[in-house]
Amino acid sequence: MATFHFQIKSGRKGTASDHASYIARKGFHSKRGDLVYASHGNLPDWTGDDPDVLWRAVDRYDRKNAAAYREAIVALPGELTPKQNEALAVEVVEKLTPGKPYQVAIHAPLSSLEGVSNRHLHLMTCDRMDDGIERPAERFFSRHNATRPEQGGRRKSGGGRNRMQLRDELIAVRKEVADTINRHLELHGHAVRVDHRTLKAQGVARTAERHLGQARIRGMSAEGREQFVSLRHKRKSDAE
């Protein structure tokens, strides 16, 4: 059954290149064997359309305490086929990356508990917004100059907004992603829908399930896993 999961993370300077290798399943990470889709876009000319060049430059030139990248992680519905989920991912990326350099990947590992495909989207973005001005890499990441933009770096998205404005923006993005998922579910004849709201806001009388993590799952016995999965399905059934 489709469930809504949308998470935003950020990474500090010095971690962007390694994390890009992780989502692209390059190098050490290639042994995971669960990469089913990869793409990128909106890259500045000096990258030569190579996202690895972008993230290495982020780690080298961005300001010390800056967020080097943002990452959105979105669960993709198991009701859709791999190709249908790719089309969904393309639309989600278009909505979340206007004017921003990005790299995207879909992973489809088997869940440790139930052995079903856990297809999800990783979207890494650079906050530097396109303004039509070409800059060398070393200036691209410098502080924005509002008076003479060609002499400074690209402006970062999110600047000038307070905490409440950023919260409201995040809620709006979550809703937009959920609406996009639901539109694709409807397009392909599925009645199930996802909801971006909290369980409390939905009027669902159960607590949110905690993420166990790989280490804890590996430490569970076969009987313990079976009991956990059974309880999970019962809670969802009781809430419907």
Rank of each mutant, 00 (worst) to 15 (best):
K175D: 10
H188Q: 02
R161Y: 11
H122I: 11
I217V: 15
R183C: 08
R139C: 01
E223N: 08
G99P: 12
G213S: 07
G152L: 06
E150K: 04
L187P: 01
R183P: 04
E150S: 12
L199W: 09
R174N: 00
N145L: 04
A108M: 06
G99A: 14
L110A: 03
M129T: 03
Q214M: 05
N182E: 04
E150G: 07
I181S: 08
R206K: 10
C126K: 04
Q165Y: 04
L187E: 02
E150P: 01
R210D: 15
H107A: 02
E134Q: 08
Q151E: 15
S112G: 06
A146L: 06
Y102A: 03
N182A: 02
R163Q: 12
R119Y: 05
E169F: 01
Q103S: 13
I106D: 07
T198N: 02
S142E: 08
A108D: 06
H107K: 01
N162G: 11
L170K: 00
E114S: 15
R206Y: 11
S112I: 01
Q202Y: 04
R161C: 06
N118I: 09
R139I: 14
I171N: 04
T180L: 02
N118K: 13
S142A: 11
G132V: 15
A191R: 05
V194Y: 02
K200M: 02
S221D: 13
D131K: 04
D195L: 07
H120G: 00
R174E: 02
G115C: 09
N145R: 04
R216I: 15
H144T: 14
V192E: 10
D195H: 06
G152M: 09
S117M: 04
I217G: 12
E186L: 13
A222C: 08
G158V: 13
M124K: 07
H120E: 00
L166C: 07
I133A: 03
H211Q: 12
V173N: 01
M124R: 09
E138K: 07
R155W: 02
H120P: 01
L113H: 03
L199S: 11
P149V: 11
Y102T: 11
N162Q: 00
M220N: 03
D179A: 13
S111N: 13
K175Q: 08
A137M: 05
G189D: 06
E186Y: 04
V104S: 06
G152D: 05
G219V: 14
R155Y: 00
H107E: 07
S112Y: 05
R183L: 07
V192M: 08
C126G: 10
G160Y: 14
M164C: 14
G158Y: 02
A172Y: 00
P136Y: 03
Q151K: 11
L185A: 11
K156I: 13
N118L: 09
D127S: 14
G203E: 03
R167M: 12
P109Q: 14
E138V: 12
V104G: 13
